[in-house]
Nucleic acid binder design. Structure first.
Lengths: 217, 217
DNA sequence: CAGCTATGTATCTGTATTGTATCATAAAAT
DNA sequence: ATTTTATGATACAATACAGATACATAGCTG
């Protein structure tokens, strides 16, 4: 299990991140200031730290100094997009930075990227007889690869992370397409159909009348 | 009892939400401006706040600031659907976002989602020997799934949340169909009959002469 | 630039869902 | 008991929805 430490004094942001990373299968711990961060790092192993720069107590840079010798990758969270801060952070040893406000998709991408770089990626999600590798973005049944497009892959991932849960068309659209306006387009349906066909999941991904779809396993 | 505070200056919207959440078993309180919201939050505990952005007095963002330290989840209600606003809201600490006009079904889904996230709700409702899973929108008896349509499911949910309570036809119609005008149509009756048949609940859902129906368990 | 792939729109069609109409039966009122 | 009214049952029609297919566009690759 990959463990991520989230250090941010704004609880909502903390929660938002935690929720999404937990959903993606990571084990998260939240602390709200620099001192607590150092304390917990003293006794617990983590694979990645998400670190806010503006912190009460010790600021982000100081915490970074503390983390450095532990050799744990760090992603800086910064409110401002000032190049100065970025450079400073990266110079001091942050592996990446993320400017608030950020899209969840981007957060996940960067987290995966960093973990991959550190060789710690959790890569496989298994659903039924299918293996989804988030790292190579590939899907296999046994050792036969199933070629999916970008959207199809994202869609599958969402279903895989929400097995047996009815997903509204709007939810699907928001997550895969990133926009909250769908209108009456039938894009989602079409992609579900294509995905079904490719995976031979004609009856596993069920349409729910007037609602959306559900992956049944 | 889960308590929800509704903050919206448009009374009809307020009422609509209140009615539906009350039916769903939540305890609701309505206020119509930001100041009142803060006042009541000062003295009463709530589990969730539904907050309109456009408010007289203090606007939604300011109220949000006020709520933040209280650590109560917030769902923003807004007419706008721009990602900018969404991010702004989420960044400031809103836990979710609902764009007006919204479907009642979606409202309930999001409320449940948030409460679940906060560990304050259960996803399964058990009635007699039947299990209703609001998350997957499925109904089972033992491990035999009972296929219900949208309306049937909503109807069952309403009965399940109001066991042994007589429900007026108008109430049923308003909640499941979302409209407050029913005329003298017999739509509700028909759906009750269909639901009865599917669940073999011919005698559990009792007709109450000149009133409506009641689920007896 | 041509050709390919990914993605999205438009359209048609079958069908599940939903609602209306009708008649039969049960409950209440007189 | 008889009338009146409400509900149950059934059949059927309208509708909305999802599946399928074809086609248009965009974006990439060579």
């Amino acid at each position: 299990m990959i463990k991520i430490l989230i250090v941010d004094d704004e609880k909502p942001i903390n929660d938002l991140i935690e929720m999404n990373l937990s959903e993606a299968g990571y084990n998260c711990t939240c602390v709200y200031d620099g001192i607590s961060a150092c304390d917990i790092l003293e006794v617990e192993r983590f694979d990645l730290v998400l670190l806010d720069i503006m912190l009460p107590g010790a600021n982000g840079y100081e915490v970074l100094d503390y983390i450095k010798p532990l050799n744990i990758p760090v992603i800086f969270l910064t409110a401002k997009g000032s190049t100065e801060d970025k450079v400073k952070g990266l110079k001091l040893g942050a592996d990446d930075y993320l400017t608030k406000p950020f899209e969840i998709v981007e957060l996940l991408a960067r987290v995966e990227s960093i973990l991959r770089r550190a060789g710690k990626t959790q890569t496989e999600i298994i659903v039924d007889d299918i293996i989804i590798d988030t790292r190579s973005r590939s899907v296999r049944r046994g050792n036969r690869e199933i070629a999916l497009t970008m959207k199809e892959f994202e869609l599958l991932l969402l279903f895989a992370r929400n097995k047996n849960i009815a997903l509204f068309r709007e939810t699907l659209y928001e997550n895969v397409w990133g926009s909250d306006f769908m209108g009456d387009s039938r894009t989602v349906d079409l992609h579900v159909q294509r995905l079904r066909k490719k995976l031979h999941w004609e009856d596993k991904i069920k349409a729910i009348y007037k609602v959306g779809y559900r992956l049944e396993v």
